[in-house]
Computed example of a mutant assay.
Amino acid sequence: MNYDYNNQYQTTSYGAQGGMSGGGFVNQYSSQGGSQSSPGSASKTYGKETLRPVTIKQLLEAKQPHPDAEFKVDDVEITQVSFIGQIRNISSQSTNITYKMDDGTGTIEVKQYIDSDAASFMDTDSGPSKPKLVEGVYARAWGRLKAFNNKRHVGAHVIRPIQDHNEIQYHLLEATAVHLYFTRGPPEQFLGTATDDAFKQESSSYGDNAGADAMASNGRSLPQMSPAARKVYEALRSGPQNGEGMHVHQLVNQLGMPYPEVLKAGDELLGNGSIFTTIDDETWAILEF
C-alpha cells in the first residue's frame, strides 16, 4: 500500500480483483458515470479520484461540510471507497439491486444500478463453482458514498462475493493501517522511539558507556541487546581470555550491578548466542563468530 498526506493511496492485489480488468477501476467508473453519479460530479473530482479501504462505521460517521462537498474520513476527502460486509438482505427493483451489508461495525445499503453496460459485472451467471451474491455471503463493494433524504448509501460500481475469507481480515487490517496513517502519521516516525527511550534510561543507571554498540572482535555487529547485556558482554570481552571465562560473582563485583540483573543479562546473551557457559551454568565466555 502507498499513502501520503495528499490523500493519494492505492489499493493492493485484493482490491484489483473482481471484474476490474480492461482499463481498471476508474475507467469502469467513468463508463457508468451516468447511472452512478449526478451531472458534473466527474468533473468536480477529476484528477483527484482515490480508492480508500474503509469500514461501514467510517462511512456512517464521515463528515460532509456541505451537501455538494465530498465526504471526509479522518479529515481527508474520500471519493471512491472499498469495503467488505455480509449481505443481510437483497431487494431488487427495476432500476437497481439494493444490498443491505453488515461488517460488524455497522450496516449500510449498497445500490447497484442495472443497465446494459453493468450486466457484465453482475454475478448472476458466475457458474456453479463460484459463490453468488445471495443473502449470508460476504462481498466486497467498490463505489461512492452518497446521501439522499438524510440517509446514506453506497452507489456501487462493482460488487462481488468473497471467495478467500482471508480477504476479510486483510481488509480490516488495511482499513486500520490507513486510518492510523492519516491520524497519527507514517509508521516510520515511531520506529525505535520506545527502545531508544528505555535504552537511555537504563544507560544512565550503569554509566555513559553502557549504550556503546557491542562489536565482536572480528568487527561484526552483535545482535541487538539491552544496555545491561552490553555491559556484561564488554566485561567478558575485556576479561582474561583463558577459555574458562568469568563467573557471575566476578561480573557483579566488577560492574557494580545487582546479581539478578547480571543473571538476566547473561540469559539474554546466552539466548542470542553471544556467549556460552563453560565449567558451570554461571561461568560464561565470549562466543566468537
Score class of each variant (00 low, 15 high):
108 I>S: 00
146 K>L: 03
118 A>F: 04
86 Q>N: 11
181 Y>K: 02
162 I>L: 03
176 T>Y: 09
141 A>S: 14
163 Q>H: 02
158 V>L: 11
116 S>W: 07
177 A>K: 14
85 G>W: 00
102 D>H: 14
181 Y>N: 14
130 K>P: 04
89 N>L: 04
90 I>K: 06
125 D>I: 08
174 E>G: 04
93 Q>V: 01
89 N>F: 06
131 P>K: 05
93 Q>K: 11
157 H>P: 02
168 I>V: 10
128 P>T: 14
137 V>M: 02
122 M>L: 15
115 D>Q: 12
128 P>M: 06
117 D>F: 12
95 T>S: 15
107 T>Q: 11
125 D>H: 11
144 R>K: 13
118 A>E: 05
119 A>Q: 10
162 I>D: 00
157 H>C: 10
169 Q>V: 04
174 E>R: 09
146 K>T: 01
156 A>W: 09
88 R>Y: 07
143 G>P: 09
90 I>Q: 06
132 K>H: 13
155 G>A: 12
97 I>A: 09
84 I>K: 05
133 L>H: 00
149 N>M: 04
150 N>R: 09
168 I>D: 02
113 Y>N: 08
142 W>D: 10
179 H>W: 10
127 G>H: 08
181 Y>F: 15
150 N>Y: 05
86 Q>A: 13
123 D>P: 00
160 R>L: 01
86 Q>R: 15
137 V>H: 02
142 W>A: 12
123 D>C: 00
160 R>Y: 05
162 I>W: 05
151 K>E: 12
177 A>M: 10
163 Q>C: 00
155 G>L: 02
141 A>R: 06
88 R>A: 11
165 H>R: 09
104 G>Y: 12
162 I>Q: 07
134 V>A: 07
163 Q>V: 09
152 R>Q: 05
91 S>K: 04
88 R>M: 14
173 L>Y: 12
92 S>Y: 05
143 G>W: 05
140 R>K: 10
126 S>W: 01
164 D>E: 12
147 A>W: 01
161 P>F: 00
110 V>C: 14
118 A>K: 13
114 I>R: 14
153 H>M: 01
148 F>T: 01
142 W>L: 11
124 T>I: 13
162 I>V: 09
157 H>T: 12
168 I>E: 02
126 S>V: 08
161 P>V: 01
108 I>T: 05
133 L>G: 04
98 T>S: 15
145 L>F: 02
112 Q>N: 07
136 G>S: 11
162 I>R: 03
147 A>F: 08
107 T>I: 04
175 A>N: 06
111 K>V: 00
159 I>D: 06
92 S>T: 04
151 K>V: 14
87 I>L: 11
101 M>T: 11
90 I>V: 14
91 S>Q: 02
179 H>D: 15
94 S>G: 13
158 V>C: 00
124 T>A: 10
102 D>G: 13
128 P>E: 11
137 V>T: 08
172 L>N: 13
137 V>C: 03
132 K>E: 00
104 G>F: 15
180 L>H: 12
110 V>I: 15
124 T>F: 10
141 A>P: 06
98 T>L: 06
142 W>G: 08
127 G>Y: 12
85 G>C: 00
142 W>I: 14
165 H>I: 04
124 T>Y: 04
138 Y>N: 05
155 G>M: 08
105 T>R: 04
